[in-house]
Design a binder for these strands. Structure first.
Lengths: 231, 231
DNA sequence: TCAAAAGTGTTCTTATTACACCCATGG
DNA sequence: CCATGGGTGTAATAAGAACACTTTTGA
């Protein structure tokens, strides 16, 4: 048995659906595979889990190696383990998603030049392995979770306008009808954990919007009073 | 040891939180370990995944070996993979929960005599490995899921009374205040997928209750009309 | 002065909550 | 005839949905 065959006899990996939002569309970060199997195909970033590495740590490492970012939101979603999902042996993979502020990401760092790319979620197709299925699971999870936990803010810069926030929700949820501006604002502000900064947008060719930020302490209070985030 | 050899020493297992309901309390099925590590301790039923076995199939096998039951509700919850969670090596485990009709289960079949037992969820403590944590995750998932999908019926016999159904929800959700009988009935009946059988309870020392059953076809219609289960 | 997005309240409809008494049966 | 749980309706409140115009800015 060759070394490669031995290596892949039985192993586990992590794969990471890295979500970003550029103001218009929900995107994910894909890599182009440089080696077999599926050489040249687009895939989710992932790696085998090291023998002395926790699963969450492996997912965080994959993310950091690709983007340089630490301490981002990361959530385990599901484990995929079909017998034949990997052509070279039995490899199960634990799928994660992470949410990053896309502006923090310096596009395609040197080591990954021409091999990683942001792609609109709605344009992704025909990924390597079972990654289409993994993406579908992670996207479904995100859609649910974003309505029941204050995750959206992880995708926005620290200061944002309410329209940006709403556009984020519209992109993620992708509902047949967009959210109603007035109802959205009323609801999110009534929860009381968005605070107005003393600043407005600059350099826009229209009335500049107020900037808000997410106040985590106030969110904790909100929870302690028995309320739940629900949008 | 080479890095390649290190990967070899890893394995993956499934563990299964098997929920049942006896009319009063929510229970899970535990086994007493007959071998090291944690010999004699109570644990979730589980096993290593065979090389040519899908993960879901492994979870179903564990369940069937213990209870004789097939085709039960089974859902993957989360994968636990701390480096030191297993004393004998790197073993990650994929946690599942399943829902069975407890009356179908012939208590402790021969091969497991004195080694498996139904335990009230609220009484479970100090399980082997990280199984306390696994149980907590599965219970949290069940609590959420039972309100947003018609899972409760998996725990009841095919024909049941509305009071039994409500007691099931009270047990699973374990809310500070019990559900209101009239509101519960109004809501669940308004969804239109519970059908009245032409039968009533027998042998009870009070007015016998009507029996109902869950009509899966009507539930599908309900979904197709754009409604969602929400309790 | 125009274009473009920001900002703002009210009404209507629907869902949720709270709540108490009579009924049918077996013992 | 008593004890036990089964079965039922209404009113008050809260939440959600629908909807259009004025304001501020830069070009």
């Amino acid at each position: 048995m060759s070394e490669v065959e031995s290596f892949f006899k039985s192993a586990f990996s992590v794969d990471n659906v890295i979500f970003g939002f550029d103001g218009g569309d929900l995107k994910i970060l894909l890599i182009q595979r440089g080696a077999a199997p599926y050489k040249g195909k687009w895939a989710l970033p992932g790696d085998l889990v090291y023998p002395n590495e926790d699963l969450d740590a492996a997912a965080a490492r994959v993310l950091e190696q690709l983007t340089g970012l630490k301490e981002v939101y990361l959530e385990q979603v599901k484990t995929f383990g079909s017998v034949n999902r990997h052509p070279l042996g039995r490899v199960i993979t634990i799928a994660y998603f992470s949410l990053i502020k896309i502006s923090n990401y310096t596009v395609t760092p040197a080591s990954f030049a021409q091999s990683s790319q942001w792609v609109n979620v709605s344009d992704v197709e025909d990924l390597a392995f079972d990654h289409d299925e993994i993406l579908a699971s992670c996207l479904a999870r995100l859609k649910r979770k974003v309505r029941t936990a204050p995750l959206g803010f992880e995708l926005l810069p620290p200061k944002f306008t309410l329209s940006e926030l709403q556009q984020l929700y519209d992109s993620v949820l992708n509902l047949p009808k967009k959210l109603d501006k007035r109802n959205f604002r009323k609801k999110i502000l009534s929860m009381g954990f968005l605070v107005e900064c003393d600043e407005v947008q600059e350099g826009v060719a229209h009335r500049p919007a107020k900037l808000y930020s997410f106040d985590r302490e106030k969110y904790e209070e909100f929870l302690n009073e028995g309320y739940v985030f629900d949008l």
